[in-house]
Design a protein around this nucleic acid. Structure first.
Lengths: 210, 210
DNA sequence: CAGGGTACCGACCGGACGGTAGAAACGGTG
DNA sequence: CACCGTTTCTACCGTCCGGTCGGTACCCTG
């Protein structure tokens, strides 16, 4: 404490290099899982991509499942933080719905491998990790449900089932992991605009009788 | 031709029993894949569930991939046939959208294992099967796009991008494979009603200015 | 510069898994 | 009832893969 005067990094709890290695392993894993699938990618493949040998991976992650678990952590924590900020700022419900959709669609550009791998394999996670990851996922789902319920309470939204409606909206955006092309013409935010317009205003031409 | 007078099944091209065995293998595969995942289910597991030995499976399907391929065939052909009938009947666009959604949601009750397995593993299919299965999938997607475009042309729907809108709608219903519980309180058709109402009329309370 | 944790590696293990070989039984047909 | 394709089985193969063992090099701290 007292001896450090010009330390550039105040508190590197764990070795800084270790943290970067860990991040690199997750990044390469996501890349390979996205390209070849979780099950068809071996720990050896990951090690090679990172530039180390297989046993070194096990210095950072106890099992392959653990890598999958942390891929989920990386993006679900982002989503939770972003939405928590909006709740604190009391963002209007309709805007919240749009922003949640935009957040998730943004992942398709920045964390496609993470998302795909989790969506397609979370059921096969060992009990412990599956449960805790589902808790965060469910917490996020409740955030959207709350935003919908709030919108109804404030008169912005019609009376709808918040649970089913949230599942519909999540479906719209989550499914993008199946078709979104990173080098496509539309940005995630453009797509969010179109999707939010659809879910807020509907497909029907003449406004429904109020 | 001339010898058969009271034949109950006019043309059992391939042995009838063989056809039933094949169907049974697909059914058990879907069940096990849904429970434990495609990759964590071995050919031996399937054989046991069917009540035969592993090599017998290979008498009906050359590879494990082929089983996955035929699981897709089973449900995509149903979907295509159902929608083709509607096109022939000139069903109105908004009803078509509802019925397509209802068809897919119905699969969650009748073919959950099929759907899940295909969605989560079609990318890892060998080139040949992947391509042909994608062709049918894309054909079905175009059907929804056409219905949307037709609705716009007829003035039922607003001006929207049919491609993106179709992807949004498919997302809503396809994603149900992740959360639909067969013994839940809501039937697939109930859910389709709610979802179609959402996508047709939107979430907003007061009608948007026309 | 001694000591101890951190990072890394070569070699290896046990087992599971997709798929095959080769032959026996079965069953419909002429 | 002889024949031939179909269906099924026992036994087996080669490979791959997640994970471990035991040790070495490295580096930071005292």
């Amino acid at each position: 404490m007292s001896s450090e005067s010009v330390a550039p990094t105040p508190e590197p709890r764990k070795s800084d290099a270790a943290e970067r290695r860990r991040a690199e392993i997750l990044e390469q894993s996501a890349r390979l899982f996205d390209r070849s699938g979780y099950n068809k990618t071996s720990m050896n493949d990951i090690a090679e991509a990172v530039g180390v040998r297989k046993p070194t991976l096990y210095h950072y992650f106890d099992t392959k499942d653990e890598i999958l678990y942390w891929l989920h952590e990386e993006f679900i924590n982002t989503l939770l933080t972003q939405q928590e900020a909006r709740i604190a700022e009391r963002v209007p419900a309709d805007l919240m719905v749009f922003e949640i959709m935009a957040d998730i669609l943004a992942l398709m550009q920045t964390h496609k491998g993470h998302v795909r791998t989790y969506f397609e394999n979370h059921r096969e996670l060992p009990e412990r990790h599956r449960t805790t990851s589902h808790e965060k996922r469910d917490r996020y789902r409740r955030m959207l449900e709350d935003a919908i319920a709030q919108g109804t309470k404030e008169g912005t939204f019609r009376h709808v089932d918040p649970g089913l409606t949230a599942l519909a909206i999540f479906g719209m955006v989550n499914w993008a992991y199946q078709w979104y092309e990173i080098d496509g013409t539309r940005s995630p935010r453009d797509i969010a605009t179109v999707f939010a317009d659809l879910v807020l205003n509907g497909l029907t031409a003449s406004p429904p009788r109020a």
